[in-house]
Amino acid sequence: MSWLFEPLAYPFMRQAALAILMISVTCAALGVYVVLRRMAFFGDAVAHTTLPGLVIAYLNQWNLLVGAVLAAVTTALGIGWLSRRQQLQEDTAIGVLFTGMFALGIVLISTVQSYRDFSHMLFGNILGVTHSDLWAIGVVAVVVLGTLALLHKELMLCSVDPNHARAIGLDPDRLRYLLLVLMALAVVTGIQAVGVVLTSALLVTPAATSGLVTKRLVPMMTIAAAIACASGICGLYASYYLSISSGGAIVLVCTIVFALVFTTIQIRSGRQRTREALSL
């Protein structure tokens, strides 16, 4: 069992484990809404659009999380504003802002001499999480999970039947904005773990996997969180023992779990169909 405890002897590994557990639960719970409301493209876009915020914060020696949060929230609200009342399709608004903001990030990076400085933004560096990062990740986790719990019935109703929600005095547009801002916050913490390029996987993959296992909302969130936590820790250990990128390893484990569950379900439903055909 020494292989299990050996990595935890290092403080940076303990911090990384704690960070990935908090990020996993936050992203997975929120990811269920992302998957069910078909907002996966949005999650990917927000992750990419944090790049200019990160670069500006880096150049001015601000806290990187603050820069990322500002960029992500600005993008989230911008997408919500552009696509309100369906004047512009949401995926079109995302496409325009996503590429524009990412291009701004690349231009800003090109003003700095070396690309190497920004590799931890693009690919994540969970092993480099500091105490202040842990606090920020913890605060985001409390805000996101607390909001999901407190507004559970309102978010559910607006997702199932926005017209009924509006008819009883709720504002589905405002709740959608709120969801976009929560996504922006979750994505920013995800960037710490797996970087700008892969962070949407933390939102989408565990939720998509749990959607294959259950068709009930709260169990779907719980299972997604469990899958994300297990994948996060496995990815971290794989990174430690195989000396591979931690962000890549975490996302790869998430994807392998999805592939295993998907294949198992396919095989089971195939057998079921065969049994039914034989019994006819």
Partner: peptide
């Protein structure tokens, strides 16, 4: 109380009949 056309609801959302009926009490 407004009963919309069936096609306006997201029927794929993972909730049960009891919960959907309960949304009528939310107001």
């Amino acid at each position: 109380s407004y009963l919309p056309q069936r096609g306006e609801l997201a029927w794929h959302f993972p909730i049960d009949v009891y919960t959907l009926v309960m949304t009528g009490r939310f107001v």
